[in-house]
């Protein structure tokens, strides 16, 4: 059958794409739009490496159909920095060495940003449960959780 013509906003820019019903939003981002910052680790919503925001809500893009996104606003890791300026979370992840191999990092950053936008003073437990769907096999999560909490503290201090 014919492909679906879908118009969305990605990182604030209008984008149109064609996709088949079987293509997920992640497939569209990676294979049709060359936005490969979102990663596929499982294709079943278990690893969170494909995390993006759809209409302001954190989701796994592997569990969203490309065809259902018409009219939606999508934010990916590629839109996280403000031009040349890293988002405070990105900067803190570098300073705190909160990444080792880096494959989970885009998804973790997108998810952490969604948390801090809701709660700029999360407890360690809240950070850990919020990020429970973002698997990391390298770090043991220690430096990730620290970086998120330190960023939150900075953001509170600066507000």
């Amino acid at each position: 059958m014919a492909k679906h013509h879908v118009a969305v906003s990605i990182n604030g820019e209008p984008v149109e794409y064609l996709c088949s019903t079987r293509q997920t939003l992640l497939d569209v981002l990676r294979d049709e739009l060359n936005l490969t910052g979102s990663k596929e680790g499982c294709a079943s919503g278990d690893c969170g490496a494909c995390s993006v925001m759809v209409d302001g809500r954190l989701v796994c893009s592997c569990l969203v159909m490309g065809a259902e996104c018409d009219g939606k606003s999508i934010d990916t890791i590629e839109g996280m920095a403000d031009g040349e300026k890293l988002h405070p979370l990105q900067q803190k992840f570098l300073e705190e060495a909160a990444l080792q191999c880096g494959i989970c990092t885009p998804g973790v950053l997108v998810a952490a940003k969604a948390l801090l936008e809701r709660n700029n003073n999360p407890t360690e437990t809240q950070v850990r449960y919020w990020l429970a769907g973002n698997l990391c096999r390298c770090t043991g999560y220690d430096k990730i959780v620290r970086a998120v909490m330190l960023t939150a503290a900075d953001m509170r201090g600066g507000a």
Binding site: R57, L58, C60, A111, L115, Y129, W130
Partner: peptide, 9 residues
């Protein structure tokens, strides 16, 4: 049900 991401859907 599932993670924060899953709960969003």
């Amino acid at each position: 049900i599932g993670s924060t991401q899953i709960q969003g859907r």
